[in-house]
Write a protein that binds this DNA or RNA. Structure first.
Length: 492
RNA sequence: GCCCCCAUCGUCUAGUGGCCUAGGACGAAGCCCUCUCAAGGCUUAAACGGGGAUUCGAAUUCCCCUGGGGGCACCA
């Protein structure tokens, strides 16, 4: 396959969400696989909806995911500039070219007249509300004179009114639309900036884009786009319209309210939130990739494996419901693939953020103990926070072994102190045998004895393996926590 | 309302006319392992939306219906 040039063209008008991330991923995969380039182009022609900070969020999200573009407004590239507001002269020329060719025309209708026309069409229940064509009928010379005189105008694309437009989508095949249902859409606004329809087509051509992957919300104006490209006489890229993401129930798109709820539940549809929620880029990427891309087996994949296996032909056109349980699964699966050193550097920030005095070598020893227990990285606090505290505060009732009372439990703790004190060291190898022997001789269950020990030493009912944990905590601290536990039990 | 798109287990999907008694993964249930919780292993339940047509034969092709989604801006 020839090197593909792909592009993601978000508008800086809001948060960077799953849909954009998936488009970017597929763009990236295709570019890498073919030895091509992945481009980020900012479609900032709508100055009214511009949201400060959104450009930064796009770049930050892409960086974090590990799928940074090869060419972008920040990084530059030989097809720049990559911000549409910096390319207005180009659009101006191209729009005029279409007018000259008779494929587009200036329109002087005021927003008020347009509004009136719309209302009138709605009132008589017209099949489709659209531009009534007043300025389409204008004499070109007359129109040119009015433009030259400084009258306010927009430029509309002259849609063919007969026949049908056949647009080819790579995933759906030919999409046939009768031209009578199409409109003379505005391609140049009165503020001198182009609309998406013109700008994207011009840029995709100028930037030599070979594959356009975009959301299915563009399907409705797809016929317009191919008509514009054809009016210029350009070759068409491969078009693939990706399906939308539905909310977990599968009924409709995620709403603001549901996005907020997801965040409360520890999930998010915004990539920039994922890091703080304890997700890894690997897990997030894997999750995103498998929504709308059918892979027969071996679901857990690294980015490199995805590059190797990606295929535009196997993208699915049907909408996909978001499933956060799968995100958790993929995240845990990728965490388990991490080396101790890697895992260590990833969990460290969460301890630091919690104000715990962490040390690298100790974290390195803890990493293998909690690796397969983590669903999200921030789970490390719940599993291993006790390692870094001077003292733990076990829930008194948790200290009482199942089926026994406080006194008997205190006795177990005392016995443990005796055993552990007598040992040359507290390595888990040294501890295991004598503790097992104690369980044997006591007539109690391992659950009961280890339970008391666990809660006393870690302060919690659920913890990493006990003996390994004590080895890291050390004898002094372990014994002190045991004595505290006895204290608590005796005062019950 | 009009136009366009989509349709396999609860969810993501494999499947391109006979290899389908419909495969995998998440989730669910059970068992094993086990110092807790996980991880891991094994097992189970779970789907071709409905109706026609083509064909010796249809999840796979065609039509209709239904359901879902998107669009109908001087927004992208």
């Amino acid at each position: 396959m020839k090197p593909a040039r792909t592009r993601m063209a978000p508008s800086p008008t809001g948060r960077f969400h799953l849909g954009s991330a998936r488009t970017a991923l597929f763009d990236y995969l295709l570019a890498r696989q073919t030895g091509g380039q992945f481009i980020l182009r900012l479609e900032d022609t709508d100055r009214k909806r511009f949201v400060p900070g959104s450009e930064e969020e796009i770049v930050r999200s892409l960086d974090w995911l590990g799928i940074a573009p090869d060419e972008s407004p920040m990084r530059g590239g030989k097809f720049g500039p990559y911000r549409q507001t910096e390319r207005r002269e180009l659009y101006h020329q191209r729009a005029n070219e279409l007018v000259q060719k008779g494929c587009a025309y200036p329109c002087f209708c005021s927003p008020e007249r347009l509004e009136r026309s719309r209302k009138e069409q709605e009132a008589r229940k017209a099949d489709r509300v659209r531009y009534d064509g007043l300025c389409r009928a204008l004499d070109p010379d007359e129109a040119a004179r009015r433009v030259a005189s400084g009258e306010k105008y927009v430029i509309r694309f002259k849609m063919p009114q007969e026949g049908a437009t056949i647009a080819h989508d790579h995933l759906r095949g030919d999409i046939v639309t009768e031209n009578k249902y199409l409109d003379d859409w505005i391609i140049m606004k009165s503020d001198g900036l182009p609309t998406y329809h013109l700008a994207a087509m011009v840029d995709d051509h100028e930037m030599e884009i070979t594959h356009v992957l975009r959301g299915s919300e563009w399907l409705a104006t797809f016929p317009l786009h191919v008509n514009i490209v054809r009016a210029f006489g350009w070759g068409e890229p491969v078009w693939a319209h990706l399906s939308v993401f539905l909310k977990p129930s599968g009924k409709g798109k995620m709403s603001k309210r549901e996005s907020a709820q997801a965040l409360k539940d520890g999930h998010s549809i915004f990539v920039d939130d994922l890091k703080d929620l304890g997700y890894t880029p690997e897990g997030a990427l894997n999750w995103i990739a498998l929504m709308g891309w059918g892979v027969a087996e071996d679901d857990v994949m690294s980015l490199d494996q995805m590059i190797g296996r990606f295929n535009v032909d196997t993208l699915t056109p049907s909408p996909a419901a978001i499933n956060f349980q799968r995100l958790d699964y993929f995240n845990g699966a990728h965490i388990r693939l991490l080396s101790n050193a890697d895992l260590m550097t990833r969990i460290k920030p969460f301890f630091v953020a919690a104000g715990l005095p962490v040390e690298d070598d100790m974290l390195l020893k803890i990493a293998p103990l909690i690796r397969e227990r983590l669903v999200t990285l921030d789970d490390c606090l719940a599993f291993a926070g006790f390692f870094f505290k001077e003292d733990v505060l076990p829930n008194p009732t948790d200290l009482i072994a199942k089926g026994l009372d406080a006194k008997q439990s205190a006795e177990i703790a005392r016995k443990c102190i005796g055993i552990l004190s007598a040992l040359p060291d507290l390595s888990h190898q040294s501890v295991e045998a004598p503790m097992r022997a104690y369980v044997e001789s006591s007539g109690l269950g391992a659950n009961q004895i280890f339970g008391v020990l666990r809660v006393a030493v870690t302060g919690q009912k659920v913890s990493p393996p006990l003996f390994e944990s004590m080895e890291i905590i050390g004898r002094e601290k372990s014994l002190r926590r045991l004595r505290n536990a006895i204290e608590i039990l005796e005062h019950l």
